[in-house]
């Protein structure tokens, strides 16, 4: 039981990182990134390939993953600079599918649909529970660092300008803010955070395959961010952990209903995700931890 809870804390931490990526791009800059799974995958592949096949240490792999994710983020924003709202969402969704299909078919580069197995775990796997605890510690620290960094960014003039762009980019441009550059910066940092989450997932789980980076991950994370509150890093962290808690709790709840077959339980679990989202949007559309307005400084 303990190792299961520790495992969930690790997975929850990975979703919390992904959720913070969405908070930065969507919550703060208004850029809907439905390609989250693609950046998650790029990070996972970058680090797994370098560490498993290239033999570099895990921390180097993690740094490389963040760089790879950020560069991919810049490329995507560069290609979509003039797109807003729905159009950006569609292009990023296509980008994620392209990443998945390339990972499936470029077998010489990625190992194809076999995926990459035996990815080094950073800590010795024969530590047993210690291995999982070490990962829980590592990921919790990283979640904290990203959370702290995003809070600082959000409170900074850069964060204020970003929110101004989110509300009305014409007004922000008239006020002299470099709209395109700031959007690209926010998107690239967000993509880097998602890539970091992917790299951590690969090293912890020891196996990655293209199927891991299906749109399901993106949908789960948007659900998490909507739950926690999309404009606030604390909301994203809370949402990420709550998501995993919810997904796993439904497993036990559905199993506890008498007379329900395994198939019905599985269907009920999927339905409960939708019901939870509808109820949430009905009663608390701003999320559990809504964005707080910053007061203008007293001069």
């Amino acid at each position: 039981m303990i190792s299961y809870l520790v495992f969930l804390a690790v997975i929850g931490g990975i979703y919390a990182l992904l959720a913070q990526s969405v908070t930065l791009a969507w919550g703060m800059a208004g850029l809907v990134n439905l390609g989250l799974a693609g950046f998650f995958g790029i990070g996972a592949y970058a680090s797994a390939m370098l560490v498993t096949w290239g033999g570099v240490p895990v921390p180097v792999g993690l740094v490389a993953a963040v760089i790879a994710g950020a560069v991919a983020g810049l490329v995507v924003t560069g290609a979509t600079l003039r797109l807003r709202d729905d159009y950006l969402a569609i292009v990023t969704l296509g980008f994620a599918e392209a990443v998945r299909i390339i990972a499936s078919n470029e077998i010489w580069l990625t190992g194809g649909t076999d995926g990459i197995s035996g990815i080094p775990g950073g800590f010795p796997r024969d530590w047993g529970l210690g291995f999982h605890a070490a990962w829980m510690g590592t990921i919790s620290v990283l979640v904290f660092c990203v959370w702290f960094g995003l809070r600082r960014l959000s409170a900074s003039p850069w964060g204020r300008a970003l929110r101004a762009i989110r509300e009305d980019q014409t007004v922000a441009a008239v006020a002299g803010k470099p709209v395109a550059r700031m959007k690209a910066e926010a998107f690239a940092i967000a993509a880097g955070i998602a890539a970091l989450a992917g790299a951590l997932y690969g090293h912890y789980g020891s196996y990655i395959a293209p199927e891991l980076f299906a749109p399901l991950v993106t949908i789960y994370v948007f659900l998490a961010v909507t739950t926690g509150g999309n404009g606030r890093p604390s909301g994203a962290v809370l949402g990420g952990y709550l998501l995993i808690a919810f997904l796993e709790a439904t497993r036990f709840a559905a199993g506890a209903i008498p007379g329900v077959t395994a198939l019905q339980a599985a269907a009920l679990r999927e339905a409960s995700v939708g019901v939870a989202l509808i109820l949430l949007l009905h009663w608390r559309p701003q999320g559990i931890l809504p964005e707080r307005n910053q007061k203008a400084p007293l001069v």
């Binding site: 190792s3 997975i11 995926g115 991950v217 997904l247």
Partner: peptide, 23 residues
Amino acid sequence: LISEDDQTNPEAGVRAARKLIDV
């Protein structure tokens, strides 16, 4: 007998397997 759903997805499958093994 405990029947879990792998959702035809490795991430969900690992979570379900963890539950079967640890819990």
